[in-house]
Design a protein around this nucleic acid. Structure first.
Lengths: 191, 191
DNA sequence: AGGATCATGTAACCGGTTACATGATTAC
DNA sequence: GTAATCATGTAACCGGTTACATGATCCT
């Protein structure tokens, strides 16, 4: 459901094709909501049927024609009403394959578990440096855009990235704690 | 898919009914993987068809009969092989309704946004105190269980709760930062 | 020669959610 | 009296994933 609202939201910036939306999606919003191309196309045509979007086709010779979607007034209204309607529960329950295995970690060889935690840290550090480079881009943006409305948009994008940044840093600390705790535990029962 | 493995995993502790599994689930693993009763029943019968579980019925007079599931050797093998097979990507992409709205926060009245952040903090603090009470229980457990295998299980349960604890604390700090940043921004452009 | 980019989609599948159905017992 | 607990499930729905289908152009 929310993918549709994300698409409507992006189309408030201007008309776009499904393909373009996918790119904008990946570059901006995917940290918060991911989507595949096939799902985007499917949802766009559903939104058009409901009257929230209109489309016109731009013919091209050597490539497939472009189908450019434009937000209708009805679509804008639906987006705005969704936007102001925050969910009661603000923490979405997370299903996590890695965590599920850690929960049953006592059934695994402890060296294997430690290796997985080390791998976890490496991945988080990679992701962290990605987020940091995005943050730097936004910092540049916010200095360049002296226009008030654009600066406001950047502010909220920065806040979403900051959440990712802070959370990942915490996860690294957590994993380091885990390695320490596990080593400690096995030192006690073996030594 | 992983719900099935969680069920197999819980059944390594001993035979149980679907109803009992639901309770154990909610009290232990639900922070990491949530499940509804209907899904549990559905998956249990699928697992039985595959030969990973066997069941026998315990007749009761005034209540519906109990259907007690037992892990088979095949089921145990499947669980162990899943357990050791960690996913390549250890961070699951999170779809978050709240965050999606914050991303488009520039479209909202800033007082409304601030209120939502305050509500967010209240909810996180409630959840935090819940996690802290669970942590205290586990501390008692780990002191009481001098048996090595039980203490090992508690260790890993503690690690999963600790992740929740640390993450929520960070989210509170983040939300406080957000309120500060938003106030700052609007003070600049209005004042 | 081979892979990325541009550009559109359809169809099957899979796992999680919600609603429906039944019904006695126990605790507040 | 009313809500929770015990105890089982089915069926429909919904949204996300994966695989399939087509095909030219541009870059290395």
């Amino acid at each position: 459901m929310s993918l549709s609202y994300a698409l409507l939201g992006l189309l408030t910036y201007g008309p776009m094709t499904g393909y373009q939306l996918k790119k904008v999606f990946d570059e901006s919003i995917s940290h918060v909501w991911a989507a595949s191309l096939s799902q985007i196309y499917r949802d766009l045509s559903a939104l058009e049927k409901k009257g929230y979007l209109s489309s016109n086709i731009e013919k091209q010779e050597d490539r497939p024609d472009k189908k450019i979607y434009t937000l209708t007034e009805a679509g804008k209204a639906v987006f705005i009403s969704w936007l102001g309607n925050f969910p009661e529960k603000m923490l979405t329950p997370n299903r996590d394959e890695f965590m599920l295995r850690i929960f049953f970690g006592s059934r695994l060889d402890h060296k294997q578990v430690l290796n997985q935690f080390k791998r976890f840290i490496v991945q988080m550090e990679q992701y962290l440096s990605l987020l940091e480079s995005i943050e730097k881009e936004f910092d540049v943006c916010s200095r360049e855009f002296s226009v008030e409305s654009e600066a406001k948009e950047v502010l909220f994008w920065q806040l979403t990235i900051k959440r990712g940044h802070m959370t990942i840093e915490t996860l690294i600390r957590w994993a380091e704690d885990c390695i320490y705790d596990i080593n400690n535990f096995y030192a006690k029962i073996e030594g």
